[in-house]
Design a protein around this nucleic acid. Structure first.
Lengths: 134, 134, 134, 134
DNA sequence: GTGGTCTAGACCACG
DNA sequence: GTGGTCTAGACCACA
């Protein structure tokens, strides 16, 4: 599975970072329905965190229907992972855009500058889907 | 002082939300050097928040040189509040843009959609605050 | 042997589901003393389950005297399978009824609604199994 | 708050027992919106379990919107705890009724016997809403 | 005081 | 081997 990176010094909980990372890999198609995710222990040693921390992230993903557990076997991407409705996605997008605006505006940036920064970040993220994944 | 909005359910600490809000008001010129900011207890009752929480935000702003206390009088915006360097601002802008991209991309939004959402948020924020809230 | 249904996502262990299912078939007379039950591997492939899991269920049923193995031949329903006493059955029935009540009551259902749901489920189950499933 | 009882020897996880107990107290109105639930530590010592176990139950209830945390203050019943839709309740009721039927039928009980057992359990549960709660 | 996070380690059930 | 549960205890941030 694609590499997950964790920032242990971040304010956001490690389990949350793992949860988000897996969600993104699934959304992006790097992890497909039926694919196995690393075992709790394996992922834990990889990331050098406690297995309970990984377990917590996985557990939440199972509860959310993103992953499913085959008992005594392993954890897999659910056959039909839940997808956000159009409305939910639109709401999330608006909220995220508002967050950028509230940072950029009072700093004196122009809208054009901000759009430009967004384009740059977009290009940066959209590109390295090659070696990085899988 | 201009109205501040707090989200008590957010993961980011309330004191941090207050600190950021004041910084933005100063950066945006809504609070000018020499202006008074509300007293800790006034602000606390306004925001329905513990005074200690406001106090912590103010303290940090004083430490950062954004505010200054005149003993026995009150708290004021510093005469010469520190401003970010161009490089710092550019870095912050890039980081904020990256955050939007990491939300929008895996959700399948197009760059155009995202830019559009940004424009909308921008217009919303830039519009002169009328009789905001409460 | 009559079709068994397993719910792999249930919290109750698969071997336990199998064990209970066989017990019920025997109690209900769908499996009679001397009848053969499917081999472990046959049952396992049918249910898409690990043979060890079926084996554990069968083993427990043998231990309980419900099934018996004829070595080199196969597994059969015991000639005189143990039956619950009246008191045991009454206790089990009460416990099961209590479980339904503890679900229905706090959900605001009326007793009549609940009895009606029970009648419907009863009719569903009592109806002679036609060409069940698969 | 009303007494919660835990069966540490039960197969169902303690955190799940706590979660269900709180859900029922809220559904039954013994805990009303805005009411405080015992602190994690208090509940833990009461039930003689580890705080992390209680925390897990509470956390799930917060995620489900049943409880809400006021940071540094305590945990409270949400102002508007989520309510199941009619369809969801109907589905749950049917499933629970089916569970009772699958126990009662193969044991040779008549439908009338089973309905009678249900009535008895119902009366038992509906009654002691007096001293038990609050 | 509150809840949240994380670690370390044990034990269990499942396959 | 897998995941799940629980304990014990430490540390942190918040109010």
């Amino acid at each position: 599975m694609a590499r997950i990176r964790i920032d242990p010094s971040s304010a956001v909980p490690i389990w949350s970072q793992i949860e988000e990372a897996v969600r993104r890999l699934v959304s992006a198609g790097a992890l497909r329905p039926g694919d196995a995710v690393p075992s709790v222990r394996e992922c834990a040693t990889d990331l050098r965190v406690n297995p309970a921390t990984v377990s917590r992230a996985y557990q939440r993903l199972v509860d959310a229907g993103v992953l499913e557990v085959r008992r005594g076997d392993g954890t897999y991407v659910a056959e039909r992972p839940p997808t956000m409705t159009r409305a939910e996605r639109a709401r999330d997008l608006r909220a995220a855009a508002a967050r950028l605006a509230t940072v950029a505006l009072p700093m004196g940036a122009s809208l054009d500058d901000t759009v430009e920064a967004l384009r740059a970040a977009w290009a940066e993220l959209a590109r390295p889907a090659r070696k990085e994944d899988r």
